[in-house]
Structure formats: C-alpha cells, structure tokens
C-alpha cells in the first residue's frame, strides 16, 4: 500500500478506528459478562450512589496499579475500566495516525493543523484534570 496515496489514508484511519472499537468492545463484553454473573440480583442502586464530596464519585480505580491488579483478578469493574480506556484512546490514536498520513502525503499544512489538534487534545485529557480551576 502506498501511504502517500489519498485512498490509503481513508483505509488506515478506518482500520485504526475499527480495531480500537473491536478491542474495546471485546474487553467490555468480558467485563459485562463478569458483572452479570456477579451482580445480576443485586439491587442496582448499590452501584449508583453518587458521592458529591468524594473524588472519585464512583468505584473506578483511581490508580493504574489498582487497575492492573483488578484486571488480573478479573474484577468486573476493573475490566470495564480498561475497556473504557481503550475506547477513549481510539480517537486519540486516530489523530496521531492522521499526522503520519498527512506527512506521507507531504501535506505540511495539515501536518501542522493535526499536530496542534493533538497537542490541544492531550493537554485537555492529561493536564487539565490536575488543574483545580477545571474541577467545576
């Protein structure tokens, strides 16, 4: 496949999205099956308590090591969290691959545009959660 070709760009971007979605769906499915096995007869209100004063408000693992431990133990909530992280990473990878593809087409204007988008996106995702002003 010639990556400098405009047709190739559509195929690569489409595949990045497709695989991201399929991997995350597979993980989420495993998590949901575990959830159904463990909690089908538990009252749903147990999981829906929103605690305004505490961060995080829900039962998602706050740290990556807790997440890894949970996934290893096949804890349904941790497996689902992993699936959601893969899902959120999908559009980010799409932007990242766009930069490479625009570069292969030698379209420098769009390489710059996409670099700015990626920078804004990563700033928003990874930096703003640590700035108190953003915790409205």
């Amino acid at each position: 496949m010639n990556l400098g070709d405009r047709e190739a760009m559509n195929d690569v971007i489409s595949n990045v999205l497709r695989y991201g979605v399929l991997i995350s769906a597979a993980i989420l499915l495993v998590g949901t099956v575990l959830l159904v096995v463990d909690y089908s007869f538990t009252d749903s209100s147990v999981f829906l308590g929103y605690i305004p004063g505490r961060i995080p408000h829900s039962s998602f693992s706050p740290s990556l090591s807790a997440l890894a431990l949970g996934v290893a133990k096949l804890d349904p909530f941790s497996v689902i969290e992993l699936g959601v992280i893969v899902l959120i990473a999908t559009p980010v990878s799409r932007v990242f691959f766009s930069i490479l593809l625009f570069a292969a087409e030698k379209d420098m204007t769009y390489v710059k545009i996409t670099l700015v988008v990626l920078a804004l996106l990563l700033f928003s995702m990874l930096v703003t959660p640590f700035i108190p002003a953003f915790h409205a």
Partner: peptide
C-alpha cells in the same frame, strides 16, 4: 475525548 480526562478523574464515569 478532550473532556473525558476530567470526567474520568472526577469519577463521573460509572462502570455499571
């Protein structure tokens, strides 16, 4: 995705 980080950190994303 741009706003997902902040909602995730706050714990507004409930696995259930």
């Amino acid at each position: 995705a741009a706003s997902a980080g902040i909602y995730f950190a706050r714990g507004d994303v409930d696995p259930f």
